Amino acid sequence: MKIKSIAAIAAAATMTAAGSAQAQDCNLGISMYTLGAPYFAAQEDAARKAAEEAGCTVRSADGQNDMVKQIGDIEDMVAAGINVLIINPRDAQGLVSAVNAASAQGVHVVAIDSTLDPSADFITQIQSSNEANGELVGDWLAKKLEGEPARIALLSGSQGNLVGRERRLGVLRGLMDSMLTNYGSAEVEVVGQGWGNWATEGGLTAMEDLLTAHSDINVVLGENDSMVLGARAALQAAGRLDEVILVAAADGQKEAYELIREGEYGVTGLNNPNEIARMAVEVGLQALNDELPEDMGKLTFTQPAAITQDNVDEYYDEESLF
């Protein structure tokens, strides 16, 4: 499978969205598998705004975390005459038939964020690189620890989730490699794993349980910012906040950025919903006007970054929904 980064295709993406819309009428559909979390709401909002600024007619649907409903949403939008579809799929395999049917009707399909099986007929999948972000976050953590052992409380989203697995392994790989490279040894222990279901309240509850069982935690590693923010509240209530480095593998939630600015949160990986959504609209418009780069692959990564106090102001957006 050919993989391209945003940087690799940026030179080919020189036309403005408005110019693209002028070349051919744009009827764009946005199919989100859920809008029940701020991250996905921000993604939908950014895609809608980018498309409307380009002069597109926009239809949007909330799948409500129900694959059958999302399939129906796509069918309805195709029947209504969309010619570009931005989809955040509920299930990698379960949405393949609906995507293939849309493409067969001449719809240009761009997948975002959640994984869609690459065998499906779509242009590209735009997402952040969990591996690359994780390694940068792990490197930052190793240098922050300055050779001291890492005793990690791990907050994971949901069991069996492939994105969560990629995120935690990326950070742990980066941490181990940087410890060995910079200090000649690596002592890393995951003292416990809690399941926070990607939510702030879930992170709080999981952290309370981990604190009860383990007195020597010096790192909290979460697979997203929301769970780490919940863990922070638990640490604060227990009077142990100053003992622990807060680390998120991904997201860049606004509340986390604000704490990073104040030096009260360590690092998070860049997974900007606005950037992903805007790029998806741009690619969809390129496809609509037959202006896609010839070498575009099925997977397009945004530029990875570890967001720390040193660079947070480059990424913080007060107007973002997330």
Rank of each mutant, 00 (worst) to 15 (best):
K2G: 07
I6F: 10
A8K: 08
I9T: 06
I9D: 08
M15T: 14
A17H: 06
G19F: 00
S20H: 15
Q24S: 12
C26L: 12
C26D: 09
G29Y: 07
Y33M: 11
A37Y: 10
A37Q: 13
A42R: 01
Q43I: 01
E44M: 09
A46L: 00
A46R: 00
A47Y: 05
E52P: 01
E52T: 05
E53H: 01
C56H: 02
R59D: 08
A61S: 15
A61N: 13
A61K: 10
D66F: 09
M67N: 15
Q70D: 09
I71S: 08
M77K: 06
I82A: 02
V84P: 00
L85T: 06
I87T: 05
I87W: 07
P89D: 11
R90F: 11
D91T: 14
A92Y: 10
Q93Y: 09
G94Y: 12
A98C: 03
A98I: 05
A102T: 10
H108M: 12
A111D: 03
I112V: 12
S114G: 07
S114E: 12
S119F: 06
S119M: 11
Q127D: 08
N130K: 04
A132Y: 08
G138F: 01
K144F: 07
G147W: 14
P149M: 03
A150N: 10
R151N: 15
A153P: 06
L155N: 05
G157W: 10
S158Q: 14
V163G: 02
R165S: 13
G170H: 09
V171I: 03
M176I: 11
M179G: 00
M179F: 09
T181I: 10
N182E: 13
S185E: 13
G196F: 11
T200C: 08
G203P: 03
A206C: 05
E208H: 08
D209Q: 15
L211Q: 04
A213G: 08
H214E: 15
I217W: 09
G222T: 07
L229M: 14
A234G: 04
A234C: 07
A234S: 07
G239S: 11
R240Q: 15
I245H: 12
A248Q: 00
G252R: 02
E255F: 05
N272V: 03
N272L: 06
M279A: 11
G284V: 07
Q286A: 14
N289M: 13
N289F: 12
D290N: 14
E291P: 00
F301T: 04
I307W: 02
D310A: 13
D313G: 02
D317L: 06
E318R: 14
E319Q: 14
F322Y: 02
F322K: 00
